[in-house]
Design a protein around this nucleic acid. Structure first.
Length: 509
DNA sequence: GTTGCTTATACTC
DNA sequence: TTCTGACGCATTCGG
DNA sequence: CCGAATGCGTCAGAAGAGTATAAGCAAC
């Protein structure tokens, strides 16, 4: 298939708001794709390259060659080019990568260059990603969407499901099962502001799991072979030797487990997220790091034990089997709750012991991978501060022409200076965006690239999940997941919160 | 040639 | 990771 | 009884914080 077919479809997708029209457009392209092309075509339609990392970023795409006049590139040729580019390494590879990129883009027309750019950045902005492609695939092949979704979850991608479907038809698609060593898309949790809202979503009874602020891991074991995958299904087995040996020590030889790795401080409270993230991201000198910061693994789900496939079993049953095959020390702290009051007390207990909150899980629900429905609902405490806006950045995409990203600062009670703690663009309605754009332009003092600096006059109430150590910001701390709640018209900057008040969050025992 | 700093990329939440 | 807004579908409301 | 209004689930897209690593480059 010619790449221009995808490029034109992508443009058409972007041009229509209707999900049904998008689905039909996708189905049209997929019905034309050959068995050889189908994986690439599905990948591209859902806005992704097949290659996980190519080493090509915005810098490499700064100056692109003049576009080709005629559309000759095929999807297979584009894929092969990215395959070669991804393989480059060592001295001189940066230059080689640039010239390979230039060559590829030089063969692409204008619309194809736009498509390739979108694929590289995963910012196609055509209003269709995986789920709509799944609907299109189902329509094109006359297969129920649910069957496509299920195979995609079990195989880790829609593209993989499409290959099976094209090669072996519906029968092959429905025959796809959980396979040891093939990671499944992880189940995701919805969120709720408090226990009442959470229980409304999940129903009762529920398992109330402590929410561990670490790194999600999916662990497969087939005898001596243990594989560990991240949330995005990247394999990180070699980075977590203690998890490998912990799982190898279990009696059950065949397992698929879902859990979180965590580290502890000497006082027994969980380490900061950054410490665990650093461990999980490190590939060099793993043994020394493991000695310095040992990780613990806590599993909260079990999808396979021996020949028992538990994917569709209710959580209550999966919990029972977990108790059979795992020692209590490897199971997430968890309480079964019949009522909201119990959920509330477990939440309070988890937070007071330094955990991130809780995730409540309906005990009748199966493992619905890749979906963010009401089966799991997370609850986290919400901290709020009144901070001063010192600048705002011009938005992109649907926020073009609007001042969007706010620079937030707290007062230094000693000097009276404002100390920047981070930025946020979240929580702003369209109306608020328009209002603040006008207001900031009135308060403008100077302008730097993409940023309008303003007189520190406006106070916003900001919610965040917590604070973290920062080497970037002058106060040594930064806000985690900051979002705007409202402007405090009733407060002047002198009444905003101080950096000391913000720091108190870090020092909770 | 080695060392140390900077930049780009890719990943976690 | 969080949040807002738009779409599509099902259910309820009103003349 | 039928079209309009409303509610809800699902999806897309706006962009934050940190950390590690490889390659490039300047200084010794």
């Amino acid at each position: 298939m010619l790449l221009v077919r995808i490029a034109e479809t992508s443009a058409a997708l972007a041009a229509t708001p209707s999900r049904n029209v998008k689905r039909d457009l996708i189905a049209g392209v997929l019905s034309e794709a050959t068995a050889e092309d189908i994986e690439i075509v599905i990948s591209y339609l859902s806005g992704r390259l097949r290659q996980r990392r190519t080493g090509v970023g915005w810098r490499s795409l700064l100056d692109l060659p003049v576009a080709a006049a005629e559309a000759t590139l095929t999807v297979a040729e584009a894929d092969r080019a990215f395959e070669l580019i991804a393989d480059l390494s060592g001295a001189g590879s940066t230059r080689a990568r640039v010239s390979a990129v230039v060559e590829l883009f030089g063969r692409a027309t204008d619309s194809e260059q736009m498509l390739l750019r979108g694929l590289v950045f995963e910012e196609l902005r055509q209003g269709a990603l995986d789920s709509l492609v799944q609907e299109g695939l189902a329509l094109a092949t006359d297969v129920p969407v649910a069957a496509v979704r299920r195979a995609a979850m079990l195989l880790g991608s829609t593209a993989a499901a499409g290959v099976v479907l094209r090669r072996g038809g519906v029968d092959a698609l429905t025959a796809v099962g959980l396979t040891l060593g093939v990671p499944v898309l992880p189940m995701l949790a919805a969120s709720a502001p408090d226990t009442g809202a959470a229980v409304d979503k999940s129903g009762l009874p529920v398992a109330v799991d402590f929410k561990l602020d670490g790194i999600r891991v999916q662990v497969h074991r087939d005898g001596d072979v243990v594989s560990i995958y991240t949330r995005s299904l990247e394999e990180i087995t070699d980075r977590l030797p203690e998890v490998v040996s912990a799982v190898r020590s279990l009696a059950e030889p065949q397992l698929v487990l879902d859990g979180e790795v965590l580290a502890f401080r000497v006082d027994g409270r969980p380490e900061a997220f950054q410490v665990i993230a650093s461990r999980t991201a490190s590939q060099v000198d793993v043994a020394a790091q493991a000695a310095r910061t040992p990780l613990s693994v806590f599993f909260f789900d079990l999808l396979r034990a021996g020949d028992r496939d538990l994917l569709d079993a209710p959580l209550a049953q999966r919990i029972e089997v977990m108790a059979e095959v795992l020692p209590p020390s490897m199971i997430v702290p968890r309480v079964l709750a019949e009522d909201e009051a119990t959920v509330g007390s477990v939440f309070a207990d988890a937070v007071s012991r330094g955990y991130e909150g809780v995730v409540i899980k309906n005990v009748t629900a199966g493992y619905a991978a890749g979906r963010r429905d009401a089966g799991w609902v997370k609850i986290k405490p919400r901290h709020t501060f009144d901070l001063v806006v010192t600048a705002a950045e011009w938005g992109h995409g649907r926020r073009t022409g609007l001042l969007s990203n706010l620079h937030l600062a707290a007062r230094d009670p000693g000097t009276g200076e404002l100390i920047m703690l981070g930025k946020t663009f979240k929580g702003l309605t369209d109306e608020l965006l328009r209002w603040q754009t006008d207001r900031f332009l009135e308060l403008e003092t100077r302008r730097t690239a993409g940023t309008v600096h303003v007189r520190p006059q406006l106070v916003v109430e900001i919610a965040c999940d917590g604070i973290q150590r920062s080497s970037r910001y002058p106060g040594g701390i930064a806000l985690r997941f900051a979002r705007v709640l409202r402007y405090r018209d009733d407060k002047s900057p002198s009444e905003a919160d101080t950096i000391d008040q913000v720091r108190l969050l870090a020092n909770t025992p």
